[in-house]
Design a protein around this nucleic acid. Sequence first.
DNA 1: TCACTTCTTGCATAAACGTGCAAAACATGC
DNA 2: GCATGTTTTGCACGTTTATGCAAGAAGTGA
Lengths: 252, 252
Amino acid sequence: MLTDQRHQIIRDRLAVEGRVLAGELASHFGVSEDTVRRDLRELAKAGECRRVYGGAVASAPLAAATVGQRSGHAVEEKMRLASAAVRLLSAGQSLFIDGGSTNAAIARAIPRELDLTVATNSLGVASALSDHPQVELIVLGGRFVRELGTCVGADTLAAIAQLGADLCFLGSCGLDAARGVTAFDSAEAEVKRAMARNSTGIVVAVTNDKLATAAPYRVARAEAIRHLVVEKSAPAAILADFERQGAEIHFA
Amino acid sequence: MLTDQRHQIIRDRLAVEGRVLAGELASHFGVSEDTVRRDLRELAKAGECRRVYGGAVASAPLAAATVGQRSGHAVEEKMRLASAAVRLLSAGQSLFIDGGSTNAAIARAIPRELDLTVATNSLGVASALSDHPQVELIVLGGRFVRELGTCVGADTLAAIAQLGADLCFLGSCGLDAARGVTAFDSAEAEVKRAMARNSTGIVVAVTNDKLATAAPYRVARAEAIRHLVVEKSAPAAILADFERQGAEIHFA
DNA sequence: TCACTTCTTGCATAAACGTGCAAAACATGC
DNA sequence: GCATGTTTTGCACGTTTATGCAAGAAGTGA
């Protein structure tokens, strides 16, 4: 990978997320942290970002515009969850990745040189993976739902039915030990169910505000969750319920 | 292999992928890396790319055409073509939009409030339309091809088969009055053919460099083209051939 | 304060680079 | 045909660049 490409990707990320972490970029690119730090120093010298301890942030005028506007809710937390979730991956696996901002963050955190097969109905996830040379990317088409950023409907279900995956990253609108993974929309839930059904293991990564809440449509029961990725500050009592039902808990 | 041929292929690759590697090109052409470096130096001198350590990147750092990759070639022209092409649209129509940087430009030029139904296999087009509130967007999924930024394969064909459209915006790798619309890749051509078959009218928008050239795979005959959008400077003789076969010519 | 992480600097190495040169391919003129 | 000049290419050479590692400095948080 060319130095210039790294710089471009770092620029893009700064524009989207407002800040980058040296360690994260290093594992994403598959280079040493020293190299990333050199990159950041150069970009900073060119005025394209400001260097801070641990990484870099977008230069002042830009930062205000983008960071705020971007699906800004809990960006930091989601990136931390993503880093933890990516540790569940290994080369050669096949994945379903559902929509939602947390899953988009996970897709962005996937190391660039990791060898995977990924099927997704999310435009954001597809875009994030579209420059990963080792990822065989399958787009699950269908009717595009603007609010979700994903495709749903009969076509989507038909495409999923033809596939199987090792892991399924389910976006969750609500997560409750009794009601399991739930979604706000019927068609969306149907797609999630299909993905879950055709996967060996289910991974759910959620921020604290989703814990112990539920949406109307059931997607998967709590005991179907194999990996649960949560914030360090997640209430232990709630996690215990999931652990009892067989989930492995991973802290961001 | 002629020097000029190599240069043209390098230009194409830069337009599609945004970057090239010296070593990769050398083995692809079967020449030494020195020769490739000479080529890159010349192209860079002519302003057609920027030389970087390890290869070269497309020079125009303007808006991303496909997904994240720069498709710097003839950006201005493509935007002008797009403005002209969009004038062919009217509310309530249904469209197929194929991949390619020109079609991505067209998608970006579609007015935000226009009421349309659009089916596309291009991630770039889908992203461009994902915030158009009046566009019913259908994503044609399938195996994602990084170099093209589009989906191809059996799934894509199956999805297209279920749809019909008023207009089909065909990306064209080469356009010749005798051989019609042609493409570089077999699977890509198959998808284009399916779109064309299920549409009432075909629209082709091309820059001058595509005129009177042909790629190996045939997509549609020249007489199938209803609307041809070209630059003002397009050679009249070539256009006359298309006009004779029933195409309406639109100047950007 | 101390332990820990992150940063910079210097250095070694391998890859990529440009340059000069000679052989080969090709065209041109006699 | 033969000589001449031009262009293209590959190779050898020394130089530059990118990168990772090591060691010490500096920042961070308890």
